[in-house]
Amino acid sequence: MTGIRAWGIDVGSSTTKIVGVEAGGTMCLHLLEDSEPRAEEQIVRMLQRAAAASGDQRVRPLVATGYGRKLVQQADRVVTEITCHARGAYRALGHGGTLVDVGGQDSKVIKLGPQGEVLDFAMNDKCAAGTGRFLENTCRRLGVDLERLGEVALAARDEATLSSTCTVFAESEIVSLLAHGVGVEPILKGLHRALVQRLVAMIHTVGLTPPLMLSGGVARNPAVARLLEAETGETVVVPPHPQLLGAFGAALVALESVGERPGKP
């Protein structure tokens, strides 16, 4: 494959992603792996994979983002996830609005202007509630496959009320609900509701400017989008490859660094 003009790498807490873009900013290659403890070794290996897959032995220019961005020694520049997700969302969807990014380790609400510029943002970076880790931990406890989590929650006719959004206390509460004979589906729906309500509180801190967009690995969970719509009354737009948006945005920043402007979606 030739024609890749710029690269982005997003070293997240759950997954590590690499995206290559061609002229105009179209995504033309991506790699995704679960993040490993030895991040630097994994980065080298993934960049080698990217080089082999693209035929671009240099994998440059490269912009790094994500919580492990500073570990990417090969990067020409490091940029935060806020900027990269905003850049990626605007290129993918072509409009501003309010972007909710639910990652493995934190969640963010980013207010985008009409040209995709970041106007304001809020981050939940102190507590696992409202993050992918919140869902991961609890689905493990309930013995439900992570990929089916949203589907199972949406199938519930009833909904259990979880009074705590603290991951640790929620787990205790789930054990208690199970012991009282409450089914897995209602618990899962209640769990998603708790997560979404946490996100909605963050949305209110920056103000909701429609349309509402959702990115990050959790955006692949249909229950989150559905409940977010129910809680806000707004349609939720999920861009293609929501999990790759950070790496995509990083690649777009790299593209701009060589004087090329990303086109419209």
């Binding site: 919580y67 940029v79 935060t80 806020i82 900027t83 106007l119 970076d125």
Partner: peptide, 12 residues
């Protein structure tokens, strides 16, 4: 996290 928050603000 605090550093990222500051960094993102400065980028903004």
């Amino acid at each position: 996290q605090a550093r990222t928050r500051l960094e993102a603000f400065l980028e903004m």
